[in-house]
Design a protein around this nucleic acid. Structure first.
Lengths: 386, 386
DNA sequence: ATTCTTCATGCAAGCGATTGCATCATTTTT
DNA sequence: AAAAATGATGCAATCGCTTGCATGAAGAAT
């Protein structure tokens, strides 16, 4: 790629010729330019390689490689020399070369709907805490709750040779055959938060049933009787589980379950119109409490309430899943169900890495269920500042 | 790595022997196991390579490679055949191999303090929007406002052969020599939001001066006269610029600048104690307005106010930098300065990619300044629901 | 007809690291 | 003393892809 060279233009086709390099009118010895360009490339990140060390120490590259990896074949003495020299020249193994040779990249892919979502960013922190310790890198992608985007990202990651995948499905996703394909080809996958049925692998979720039960029960115990339920796409695993928790609490207190009080949001609250519509449909039923089943929906619903019906916004008790650390700032205030996001990330990562590093195919899979925490609304606070 | 083999234990040293493989008591022909293991590795991600295509089509790998890359040397006919076949077998170039050969990875590193911060997650969305289009991958790392972590992450990324780096410095960072080193070695770097002085490269920032001026002026025009300023680490570029904007607004309205009304938070509000301390020191000065200069500080300060001095929290007017999309939910409500986060990400990425792909060293650098937006508090809303 | 261009393709050398096996000197065992 | 085992190291192939250059055929220019 000798940019200093004029390439001759072919008279016939008017395209640039190849194999013919001109400097002015003279054919020139290419070496001059090639060497220059090569040097430029070499200079860029002039890091020492195993070869350099080998040459400097009068050893072979294999010996150096083995010494660096602390293999038993190499004598202690040699190891010491190699290690010392490597340290001196600040040698870093080229991870790309290693990946090529070892057919793995020491990186794991993460797919979440939005990193801006508190729950997911906390999960990611959990993932990183484990991954970095075990010397894995993480590559984060966002699906923005779109199936198409999700699939694209996963395939992009797969082509980048990730060693494993951690994924929370988008609210749109129904068809996970593309994941099955990759899984069948040997890509370890661990699902978290939003997990599919009929997919035999490790999964990590919050105790959605209990979280919902607790939140709903809390509303009931505060005297609410007409409790609506605003929730995510019907297809998501946690939507179902949370609905069950809600129902169970109603049952326990002998409150009749009314399907019309349940509203699903296909896009998980990505569009505010969706939420406003749901709120609009719900209000005529005069709910005195709403239980909301996801982070984005919770904040979105309060916003929608405030925007469309400010006069009732403060009269309806709200309990919802959210990992926002700003809940205390919200007005109207609410009771929140916090998922153990950080831990979910940690556990999922541990499972994934165990799969990646397993010597032989795994046949036993677990679904880990971690408890949620109910953070009750500070009652007085809520009123004092109203 | 033939795991099916028992390695004989050396009687002398009690270590496992090498070069000697046993199956039960018999020395066995190693090939059997090696082949098996190789096959397992092969099977994992059984993707077709250029070699496979070449063999199937009776061409050389060079021709296939060139055809796939649409080089002019190859005839249209051959290209068509190769492309069709590649499509058929769903060929994907191995990016690792390509990276090794080309000495670049087609990925760019991002360092932010927290992805959970709305500003940064929006920046990241902007970065992705450009990067993915140009076929670059992004790798996100968080410094958590720690210098040590930041340096570690940058070096980790660099060793992963990123092609370029987008970075917003942590609030702790003072010494950027490690970045200078990498830059000198040829790593393109673009700074955004928190940029260093004396570093000749592209930078992208918000118009911090004007943003601060506007916010402060807004407070003044609402009748406030004792306006405190809560801000980030004194060393950050935007801290200085925002302070200047604040001062300029005071000057314009003939309000005396009082240094004691300015409080710096070294850790950018990562520790709530830091904020509570600042609030505690500020309140005795009886401010009737506070201008806060960063996302995390803004929310953190309101929280601290509410927690420590709920009785005054609603009496002090607050204006602050924040990109939170939940501002409308906050109580007390506030006036916010929104940075053009998405655009900052886009512009920074475009600049970075232009550096990466530049044919020759760049000597002219730009600092792009994008305008902020002032979102005024909804006055009635603020009161009606109090 | 001869020489020069133009086109199309293949050869082979890397990129940096890993690793099976050969080699050889040195024990240890029989 | 001969045979076997051990210990330390090097050779060379390989991962998948890119690319400078050689090659050889066909067409154009002289």
């Amino acid at each position: 790629m000798p940019t200093d060279l004029t390439k001759k233009v072919c008279k016939r086709s008017q395209k640039r010729c190849f194999n013919v390099y001109l400097l002015g009118r003279f054919r020139i010895p290419k070496e001059i330019f090639f060497v220059t360009w090569e040097q430029v490339l070499k200079m860029r990140f002039e890091t020492s390689t195993i070869k350099d060390i080998a040459k400097a120490l009068g050893l072979s590259t294999s010996t150096v490689s083995r010494a660096l990896r602390d293999r038993y074949e190499i004598s202690e003495e040699t190891k010491k020399i190699v290690l010392a020299y490597a340290e001196k020249v600040n040698y870093r193994a080229n991870p790309i070369a290693r990946s090529l040779k070892e057919r793995r990249s020491y990186s794991i892919g993460i797919i979440v709907s939005e990193i801006a979502n508190n729950f997911f960013s906390q999960v990611i922190n959990g993932i990183e805490s484990i991954a970095y310790n075990k010397d894995y890198h993480v590559i984060i992608s966002q699906s923005h709750e779109s199936y198409k985007q999700e699939k694209l990202n996963v395939e992009h990651l797969a082509s980048r040779s990730i060693d494993g995948l951690l994924i929370a499905l988008s609210s749109e996703t129904q068809d996970i055959d593309y994941l099955r394909d990759l899984y069948a080809k040997g890509l370890p996958i661990v699902f978290f938060d939003r997990v599919p049925e009929n997919f035999e692998t490790h999964k990590v979720i919050a105790n959605n049933f209990k979280g919902s039960f607790d939140a709903t029960e809390h509303l009931i115990l505060s005297g609410k009787r007409v409790i609506a339920h605003l929730t995510n796409s019907e297809t998501l695993s946690n939507t179902k589980e949370r609905l069950e928790g809600y129902k169970a609490a109603l049952t326990k207190y002998h409150i009749e379950f009314k399907p019309e009080l349940v509203k699903y949001c296909q896009h998980g609250g990505m569009h505010s119109a969706e939420l406003e519509q749901a709120v609009k449909e719900l209000l005529p039923l005069k709910p005195d409490g709403i239980f909301i089943s996801s982070d984005r929906l919770t904040t979105g619903c309060i916003l929608a309430l405030k925007n469309t019906n400010p006069e009732v916004a403060h009269k309806i008790a709200i309990a919802g899943f959210t990992n926002s650390n700003l809940v205390e700032l919200f007005s109207p205030s609410l009771t929140s169900v916090k998922q153990p996001a950080f831990e979910i990330g940690q556990v999922a990562t541990e499972l994934l890495i165990s799969m990646i590093e397993a010597k032989r195919p795994i046949t036993e899979f677990e679904t880990k269920i971690l408890d949620t925490e109910l953070v009750r609304m500070k009652k007085n606070l809520g009123n004092r500042f109203l």
